[in-house]
Design a protein around this nucleic acid. Sequence first.
DNA 1: AGGTATTTGTTCAGCGATTGAATTATTTGC
DNA 2: GCAAATAATTCAATCGCTGAACAAATACCT
Lengths: 412, 412
Amino acid sequence: MSPTHAPVGAARQGSLRELNLALVLGRIAAADRPPSRADLATATGLTRATVSAVVEDLLAGQLVSEAEPAPRAGAGRPARGLVLADQGPAGLGLEVNVDYLTVCVVDLAGQVRHRTVHRADLRPVAPEDALARLVDLARQARADAARQGLTLAGAALAVPGLIDDSGQVRLAPNLGWRDVPVPELLSAHPPLTDRVPDVPALVVDNEANLAALGELHSRPPGPASFLHISGEVGIGAGIVLDGALFRGARGWSGEIGHLPVHPQGRPCRCGGRGCLEQYAGQEAIVAAAGLVRAELPADTATARLAELAEAGEPAALRALNDAGTALGVAVAGVVNLLDLDTVVLGGGYAPLAPWLCPPVLAEIKARVLTAAWSPVTVRPSTLGPEAAAVGAAGSVVRRIVARPAGWLNRAG
Amino acid sequence: MSPTHAPVGAARQGSLRELNLALVLGRIAAADRPPSRADLATATGLTRATVSAVVEDLLAGQLVSEAEPAPRAGAGRPARGLVLADQGPAGLGLEVNVDYLTVCVVDLAGQVRHRTVHRADLRPVAPEDALARLVDLARQARADAARQGLTLAGAALAVPGLIDDSGQVRLAPNLGWRDVPVPELLSAHPPLTDRVPDVPALVVDNEANLAALGELHSRPPGPASFLHISGEVGIGAGIVLDGALFRGARGWSGEIGHLPVHPQGRPCRCGGRGCLEQYAGQEAIVAAAGLVRAELPADTATARLAELAEAGEPAALRALNDAGTALGVAVAGVVNLLDLDTVVLGGGYAPLAPWLCPPVLAEIKARVLTAAWSPVTVRPSTLGPEAAAVGAAGSVVRRIVARPAGWLNRAG
DNA sequence: AGGTATTTGTTCAGCGATTGAATTATTTGC
DNA sequence: GCAAATAATTCAATCGCTGAACAAATACCT
């Protein structure tokens, strides 16, 4: 879990510089062309003198570098464009999932500079062994990052389950984990990242949350508020509000899989009845399509479904349509409640989006009061299956961009 | 609608003072005993010198005043306690509802210093006439406030309907309003409040949202995140996350009344089927209890229901239990999605809470995955029926507390 | 009663960061 | 080759916080 925005504290002299460092760096990160110092001055309202001073700090700290000036028409001294540095701090993203481990490194600009996927069925593997393998991959990633001039400033780990404030995995049903003290187990190994003030060494978070963050920071930038749905065996949602992930009182938000869509319907392992998961979960779709899931590795089930649907197989089409309708009922409720205008289908849903989107949209049209005034977009995720790991790594670098003072003031 | 938190901009010299004014004033507002300057210094991390300077500004601006020192054991110069001023700025709260108009004035400390309720059936009244009556009441309120040394710094109007960014009422079904340009109609009258920088002259917002804000700022302070449900003819929810109202992309969040609880159930006027409103709306409960709503003024229907339930009337008890179950299905979904730990039943639900809470809690227990680890509280609102107007006025003064520089820098 | 310890609040020199104007740097257009 | 234009830097002035010394007001002790 991660703290929210700037913790409000005493504003001292140095706070000014901290704020302006973040302001200027944020502008550089958000710009679609390398801005000059003068551009930044007009954009931020600071004077050019201040911007120069701030940029000098950022350059010295390897957070930005000067790029070739964009050719400009007209007279005048040419501007020197500023871009996020491709050396300096980077984020380490980790993911443990049912049938793979992923490690990746993302730089300040959001580029994936290293990626490893290790395919294996992790269910029979003990948590500490799975984490040990992950540490191995991470160590290689760190070495590769160092070769590229990158320093790992922090790490985030995505797990498909419920994580509490301390980073302990309370329950990851599909992985078979229960009460796994991940930070403790990882601290038995030598540290994976350098110590940077204001950047936690390790954040453990829900896979759906981090995938949503990945989507949020993907290029081109999308809306600041949306619902990202990860349809795997369970169905998780990441809720992004005003450019920030909403985690709920204890970090357990997004349990969309247990929204009731048929209140007196099939019993669910959660104890309720008629939960969405029973109608739009991967197992439910596969079963409805007449496939035998046991015969398929988990990661090919959706691919197979997409093939069948592509071929026009009636059972598959019906199964997807029914799942989409159930999903639409739940999503309509969420949209009514939160007034979101964008829904992203991610994880296992992404490749099935062509068949899921229409029934989802139909339910939204029918059930959302305000849809008449402003339409709701439903689209597949642009990131691949490793969205969660990329989002995890991205969350680290976003934190540095949001609060560069910590990195700049680090020892050394 | 209102802007979100502190708009991130250039941090200039004066920003420091603005931040510290807000920091210190916020501490004074949040303290349960009048703090001394020295208390504030240790609490905020500022030096006593700075706190003194900041407090001097606040005193000069009539935002705080010195109270009798709390008797303290031990040696030392006695402290002078600081409290929010009972003179100075105040907020004007307005509400238009189906069968009444309300106007109230709330001071910085959150005390209601003036309140008028004008009972009348507003449905047959044209919007401009209803607003004209409201302006009349507001003018009296302003005069009364002035007599008490209060200056109205801004106003907020609660309307049971959908309001867009510009303050226009797009649709208020129970009032019969559609596309009513409230700010424009009100600007035809002389201004109701003084002009204060950073405080909008008039905010128009949904009644459920403002009632939730009222609950948020009621004493004693409750949790920072909760769901406030206003059960009137329609069912609206105010979502408070981390001490801030969540309004959604266009300010239309909280339409909980149209969450599906029986997806193939009764058709609803929204076009969907099986919406919560059809099972737990006031009309549905009254009908299920065997009462004829037409014979009852709207504001006595719930009172009558409570009487019958109190007397043990089986039809009333059954109706309330069924409504509570439907409400529980919807609330369980919301709690799963947002991971909230508190649900407040407000509006017409408050007096019925003794009969509604048990079935709501039962559904939550059955359906919320995480309820086993940490229980969810369901309780009635502590505010009376005018919660929305009080919340509206409170939102004005909270804004001044959060951003005192605007008030201090006002002309004059 | 008087002195001392203790806590509160204020005063003031010092300092860091921003400002605004002047200055330097570098290019285009005539 | 020179003027105009735009970019970036330099520097005195100013604003607001800090830290320490100081003044104020009370309780406790003898």
